[in-house]
Design a protein around this nucleic acid. Sequence first.
DNA 1: ATGGTGGAAACTCCA
Length: 267
Amino acid sequence: MDFSLATWNINSVRLRLDLVLRFLAEQGPDVLCLQETKCPNELFPEEAFRAAGYEHVALHGQKGYHGVAILSRHPFADIVRQEFCAIADARHLSARLDVNGRLIRVHNFYVPAGGDEPDPEINPKFRHKLDFLAELRGVSAEAEPGTPAILVGDLNVAPLEADVWSHKQLLKIVSHTPVETEALTLAQSEGAWRDLMRQAIPEPTKLYTWWSYRAKDWEAADRGRRLDHIWSSADIAADLTGIEVLKDARRWERPSDHVPVVARFNW
DNA sequence: ATGGTGGAAACTCCA
């Protein structure tokens, strides 16, 4: 059976509703995890997604900032919203999906960006990011024995040298500092997660999911970073048939600065 | 070294 799941930091789901609908129509994933919806739950455009075939919608939103959502063709067995760092930000949402009788846990994360200054002593946003990544170590792919797990989202860290346009030039830039990349790698290994994007497209191939709005010509400069990730438990990592990074979505009108990433499985 | 752009929401914060 084929199953596909996508992740996309949409940077306002209401402003870019037409882009999400276009993506769903063109790619038709079973599940789409959105981050930075910037939308309170009561204003989330649920009906438009239902009409597009995504009848099951799980929300964890807040006004103005952050916000995550899961759109699914398959019903949810349960929904969990976990609080991290004892801060009531909408940065996590998890659902157990019933995919034709097979249960799958899906975690959707929006990790704090961390501000500009990579020093936790003087920058509380960076402190928060490191604390969040430390707490992420407690999220295990094997938490529910017998239930495979997928973890996706904007993790706001580009961990590998091939995940950035210039390793040397970004070593002191938030998202690629050693303290962050080590924290993310530790969360991945302690949680027994597999990096599916790098399983499908290994180093040293460059892989980016985000290009800044601030470049004059983002495509010519190509100063991208891989901030968005798809991880899974080992059992279904073997069922991965492909990863697609939809760079074309960065060329759409009024785009998000992140592009969707799709993982396809056959089991 | 700096500022560049974009979104929410509201005269500023955040990415």
